[in-house]
C-alpha cells in the first residue's frame, strides 16, 4: 500500500499511538513465558491477568516468531503484531469474511482462530498473493471488472475467490452441486454459493462474480 508523502502522521500511525496510550492506562501487562524447550503450555493466567505463549508460523513465506497473549486472534496477530494490514477486520465474528486468509492452502476466517493455535502453519494473506507491479490474476481481474467500491472487503473476497476455484478443482461439493458424484463445474451459481461467506456492503457482487468467472475461464 502506498503512503501519501505529504502526511507526516498516517491514520494508521495515529491508531497505533492510540493503542499504545490505551495500554499505558492500566490494561493487563503481558507476562512473558516461553523458555526454550518448554512444553507448549502458556504461562499462568492468575485471576484475569493475561497469559502468554510462544508461537511460530510462516506468513507469506517469511518465518515469524513472537510471544502472544493467548487471546490474540490470528487476525489481530497479522494486523497488530506483524503489521500486515491487508487482511481486514469486519464483524470479528466469522460472519463477513473480510478477514479471510489461507492457512496451509485453505481459506479460513482469521478472526475465529487463535494465533497460538497456528504453530508451524503456513499462512498466506493478500499481501502474499501479488504486488502492485506483479498482480495475481485474481487481483488483476477484480481491477479489470471493478469488483469493489470501497474496497474494504476486497482482500477477503480475493482470498476466498482463489480458494473457491481451488475447491471446485479439488472436487469439494457445495450446496448447489446437483450431482455429488460427477466432476464439479465452475458455474455462476457455484461461485455465488461458495462466496456466500464474504459480504460486500457496497453490493459489488455482480462485478465480483464477473472477475471470478473471468479467472476461471482463463484457467480452464
Amino acid at each position: 500500500m502506498s503512503q501519501h508523502p505529504r502526511f507526516k502522521i498516517t491514520r494508521r500511525a495515529l491508531m497505533i499511538v492510540g493503542a499504545a496510550s490505551a495500554a499505558s492506562l492500566g490494561l493487563p501487562r503481558l507476562a512473558t513465558a516461553g523458555r526454550d524447550g518448554e512444553s507448549p503450555t502458556s504461562a499462568p493466567a492468575a485471576d484475569d491477568k493475561a497469559a502468554t505463549a510462544e508461537v511460530a508460523f510462516t506468513v507469506n513465506g517469511v518465518p515469524r516468531r513472537f510471544t502472544a497473549d493467548t487471546r490474540l486472534t490470528l487476525l489481530d496477530a497479522l494486523r497488530e503484531q506483524l503489521r500486515l494490514t491487508g487482511t481486514k477486520k469486519g464483524c470479528d465474528h466469522g460472519q463477513c469474511g473480510a478477514c479471510t486468509v489461507m492457512v496451509n492452502g485453505r481459506r479460513v476466517n482469521a478472526c475465529l482462530s487463535l494465533a497460538v493455535m497456528h504453530e508451524g502453519d503456513e499462512i498466506t494473506t493478500v499481501e502474499g498473493l501479488g504486488t502492485p507491479d506483479n498482480l495475481d490474476p485474481m487481483q488483476a481481474a477484480f481491477i479489470e471488472h471493478d469488483g469493489y467500491q470501497c474496497g474494504y472487503c476486497t482482500p477477503g473476497q480475493i482470498c476466498s475467490a482463489k480458494a473457491t476455484l481451488q475447491e471446485i478443482q479439488d472436487g469439494v461439493p457445495s450446496h448447489v452441486t446437483a450431482d455429488l458424484n460427477a466432476p464439479m463445474k465452475v458455474t455462476a451459481e457455484e461461485i455465488r454459493e461458495r462466496m456466500s461467506g464474504n459480504i460486500c456492503r457496497c453490493g459489488a457482487y455482480a462485478n465480483i462474480l464477473d472477475a471470478v468467472r473471468d479467472v476461471a475461464g482463463e484457467q480452464s
Binding site: 466469522g94 469474511g97 479471510t100 485453505r106 481459506r107 479460513v108 476466517n109 475465529l112 482462530s113 476466498s160 480458494a163 473457491t164 475447491e167 461439493p173 457445495s174 450446496h175 452441486t177 455429488l180 458424484n181 461458495r194 462466496m195 456466500s196 461467506g197 464474504n198
Partner: peptide, 25 residues
C-alpha cells in the same frame, strides 16, 4: 468420495451449513 456416494444426506447437510471458510475449520 465414500460419503458423497453412500451417505449423500450427510454431505448435503454439511454443505448446507455455515460458509466455506467455517467448514474448513
Amino acid at each position: 468420495p465414500r460419503v458423497r456416494r453412500h451417505y449423500g444426506v450427510l454431505t448435503r447437510a454439511l454443505v448446507a451449513g455455515a460458509s466455506g471458510q467455517l467448514r474448513n475449520k
